[in-house]
Design a protein around this nucleic acid. Structure first.
Lengths: 154, 154
DNA sequence: GTCCGGGCCGCAATGTGTTGCAATAGCGAA
DNA sequence: TTCGCTATTGCAACACATTGCGGCCCGGAC
C-alpha cells in the first residue's frame, strides 16, 4: 500500500523536518499517537505564527475529541525537539512559531494590529547591544516588541 | 482631626503622585471609593513591578471583600492617569510598573528568573535601530526581552 | 439633612493556560 | 500473538484575565 509520506522528497535541500518527527519522537522512547499525528498534520499545513487556540480549533476539525491539555503538552514536546517555538504575543497570549529556520523576534503594531518578523540584521543590533553592554544573551524567539509601524504614526 | 496624608511632603521635589490621585480621579467626574483607596495604599508601599495577582492578594489582606474585577478595573483607570503601566512578563502574565518615571523595557533571565529594568541608554539603541531601519517606533514599556544574564551562562 | 443620578461594585460566566490523577493504549519483548 | 511496562490521554479542577449586568452608594444639588 503506497503511502505518499513515505517517500517525501528527501532532496538535496533536505526532507521536511516533519518527516523526521516520528523518528525523533520514538528515538526518545516517546510514543507516536493519533493525537500527535493530528497536531503535526495541522502544523505542516501552516507556517509562520499560530495561536494555541487556533491550533486547538484546527485539530478539533479533524478530531472532535481533541482536548486542549493534550495539544499544549504535545506542543511542549515539539518545542523540545525544536520543531516549534513559543512566545507571547502583544496581549500575552501564547503564540507558536512553526519551524523556526532561524531565530527571530517579532514586531507588533498597536495601530494596525499587524505582526512582523524582525529581520535578522535588525535583531542582531539588539542582541549585540545587550551582550556588549550587559553581558546579557538575548533569546530573540521570545521577544515581541510593541510600537507603531511606519504607516501608523497617528 | 489631624491626618498625616493631608500635608504629605510637597517639597521641592514634588509631592508623591499618589497624593494627587484623589483629585485627578475626581476631576474626571470619577469617584473616590474605599476599594480604590485600598489599592492605592497598596501601590504606594511598593515600587518597581508587581503582578496583578500579587496586588489582589495584598488588597485582600486589607479588605477581605476585594474582588479581582474591581482591582483590574481600577488598574485600568490608574493607567489612564499614568500612575501605572502594564506589560506582559516573560510568561505572558500581566505585570504592572508602578509610577514609571521614565519608560523602560525589561530583561528576564530564564536562568535565574530575575527581571531587570532596561537602562535608558540601552533601550535607546533598540529604539533607534528599529526607527532608522524600519520606521518603527517602539513602545518600550511593553517590551520584555528573555535571555540569560551574565551570571547564568550555563 | 435628604434626594437623586450615574459611576462603581460584586457576582457570575467566559476564555485561555496549567496541572493532578486514574485509565488507556503504544510498542518492545517473550 | 500476547504480555507488561509506562508514556500519554482525557477529565476535572484550578489559576488568571476579562466582561456583562443588576443593584448599590458616592457626592453634588437643594
Amino acid at each position: 500500500m503506497p503511502h505518499a509520506e513515505m517517500n517525501a522528497g528527501a532532496g538535496v535541500t533536505g526532507p521536511s523536518p516533519w518527516d523526521q518527527a516520528v523518528d525523533r519522537i520514538r528515538a526518545g522512547g516517546l510514543r507516536w499517537t493519533p493525537q500527535r499525528r493530528t497536531l503535526i498534520e495541522v502544523l505542516r499545513e501552516r507556517e509562520g505564527h499560530v495561536t494555541a487556540t487556533e491550533l486547538i480549533a484546527r485539530c478539533r476539525e479533524r478530531d472532535q475529541t481533541t482536548t486542549p491539555s493534550t495539544v499544549y503538552r504535545t506542543l511542549d514536546l515539539l518545542e523540545d525537539l525544536g520543531l516549534v517555538r513559543h512566545g507571547h504575543g502583544h496581549d500575552g497570549r501564547e503564540e507558536y512559531h512553526i519551524l523556526p529556520q532561524e531565530v527571530h523576534g517579532h514586531l507588533y503594531c498597536v495601530g494596525c494590529g499587524t505582526t512582523w518578523e524582525l529581520r535578522p540584521e535588525t535583531g542582531a543590533v539588539i542582541v549585540e547591544a545587550l551582550a556588549s553592554q550587559l553581558g546579557f544573551s538575548v533569546d530573540l524567539s521570545h521577544v515581541t516588541i510593541s510600537g507603531r509601524c511606519a504607516g501608523c504614526h497617528d
